[in-house]
Design a protein around this nucleic acid. Structure first.
Lengths: 206, 206, 206, 206
DNA sequence: CATGAATGAGGTTTCATTCAT
DNA sequence: CATGAATGAAACCTCATTCAT
């Protein structure tokens, strides 16, 4: 098994099991919180013994790592074409916000789970991995978009890293909190409101 | 002891111990994360036996509750005069952002700890209390400020709850993440950038 | 495991472990008293880690409950045929006393343990479960026997509940105390003495 | 303090405190059971700090020992004149049963507490002191009464120790259990029923 | 591949006891 | 004499992990 992990060569059936386990972990975490997501609970949800998880993943850490990796990949695949379809910086910003909202509607549990893991999970060093992977993910992309918009004169001069950070937490955090406070919130219109705010905050000519 | 808790009458020396324990809990949580903040660890930090904590707090839950209560009180006392000093809505928004940044600089660990507790801690029902208390705290205040600004014509028409949520997570989340990613970040200028963005996003005449 | 508990379907090997653990608990309790019967002690006696007990029983409460259940079942199976073999009320009373003595000789520790648990154990509500299950067990049976004997004219008119209570504590308590005071007491002749006393106390014609 | 204990010379006020503490221990044990009778609980009931108990009693063991000693003394003082007033063995047996019932009605908590302590408490050697003191107390007295009755020809020939044991547990155990099962039971008539049974079981001429 | 059984470290909490004030 | 504060041992329980089958 560990050999497989190192070589990266995995059976088809094994890949399926890993995917199933990750999905169950996602659901358990999203529904009951990270603290309740014990190996036993995840195994029960998957209908398998908890030792199966240990068989397929070296560690609970590895499972969480893979969970996050999966989520990030899904998110990226979801977002990328929407960003590419927009020629202007303003369009890309809007697409980022509304696309993220759409992603969160589609993959709600996955998004909630990633947030939980990011905040509660511990890295290999034992220190919390707060927002290491997931929030860093689109940072370069966002900064690039904003920077290009400034160069082209479309966007005003602001600190690119600050604005990128604000954008990121607007979608990964603000919307999630809003949804958690009121599960019936309309993410679509919520995203449009945010998009407008960002358009005003970033455009060049006031 | 529980009698004390119920009556609310506490010795001076007891109040001091409670404060000390809370402070140590804050430091441990901020530095090592919630998961590492065991009673033993907090006790070790305070130089006392872990049972002393049980002596002064009924529960680990009560300790965390008091920690959050303390932090919220401190934050409120810090922010309120700064908001009151500003007559205009724009001024209050700016004060909210910069004041929060200043608070975070002054009480860094306390703020980090509250975030950790909010995300990782479990309520009495066993369910995570994700950001229940701390983030809800200033929600009415913010919404009131924004609403009044719209009524007076100073601010444009936007969804008050969305903008309030964005403001809130900008200070409680965006800045924290930025600081965590790069501890040397200048919160002051970071806050000014944010304040500008919000000024543009909320003012009435574009 | 809890799944097993709920479904009631248990492996053969698991049933064996449970029986072993219960037996060890019985021995520890009988020899050292309830207060000394910690999980660690029971585990040590069984040659297993204490967590194994937690694996097989949800709770210490469940362990004690199962212990009592086992003892009561054993006792009933032991006594029932002896009672059924006697046609007369006097015969049944004698069989009850002597049969119980025989049971106590055969399952000494088990009987001692049940007494300890009955007196020291706490129910789920935290209140002592003094003699709830074990002593109530044969109450209806005894009262029925005595009542039938009165109806048939074989026994005199007395308060059935008082006499049943006396009978019950004569076997569950008097004999135990006697044995505890002097471990070499001859339970057989002790029982015969008791049987005679009850025959005289209950028969119709003086 | 320990000097006082050893010398046996105690202040008046000290004696009063000890009596008060013992009484509170009795009440707590009778009402909540031995397991709930912690030093803190007893102290709370007495309105004093738990360390006061440690000041007046060397040990929790000593407290329990004194509690039992007090109860036994009270019981003896209560019973002795009633026994002495009866010239015949049958009269003494009846007086023992009914007198004990009366005692239990008068000092209910004390009696319940002694039973709890007898069954749950641990002796200095760490072994349970199950009924060592209290049940042994009147054993010689009872046996003497029965023996004398046999010698005088008033009582039939039975094993004195068995009958004494039965009498003892009839009052210390049977009645208590009856009262515990149904707090409204009439101990007086209960005792009369028992007295009749023992009269029939012990008299010489059938 | 999968499982049930077992483990041991570690967490929270309780409690009798001690001690300076 | 009495108190509040502190202690440390010990109890129960949880959980990630390992292993023989």
């Amino acid at each position: 098994m560990s050999a497989n992990n190192e070589r990266g060569g995995r059976t088809f059936i094994e890949e399926a099991r890993r995917a199933q386990i990750i999905q169950c972990a996602v659901d358990v975490i999203a529904e009951s919180g990270y603290a309740r997501a014990t190996m036993a609970e995840i195994g029960k949800r998957a209908g398998i013994a908890k030792s199966v998880i240990s068989y397929h993943f070296a560690d609970k850490g590895e499972l969480m790592q893979e969970l996050v990796r999966t989520a990030v990949a899904t998110y990226t695949q979801f977002l990328e074409p929407r960003l590419a379809a927009q020629p202007t910086a303003a369009g890309k910003i809007c697409a980022y916000v509304t696309g993220s909202a759409e992603y969160m509607s589609t993959y709600t549990n996955m998004h909630l789970a990633v947030l939980e893991v990011a905040f509660n999970g511990l890295g290999p060093d034992g220190r919390p991995l707060t927002a290491s992977i997931p929030l860093e993910t689109h940072k370069p992309t966002l900064e690039r978009i904003l920077h290009d918009g400034q160069v082209s004169g479309e966007l005003r001069q602001f600190d690119v890293r600050v604005m990128a950070g604000l954008l990121r937490s607007a979608v990964t955090h603000t919307m999630v909190m809003a949804q958690r406070a009121d599960p019936d919130v309309d993410l679509d219109s919520y995203a449009r409101e945010l998009a407008t705010a960002f358009a005003l905050a970033t455009r060049d000519r006031p």
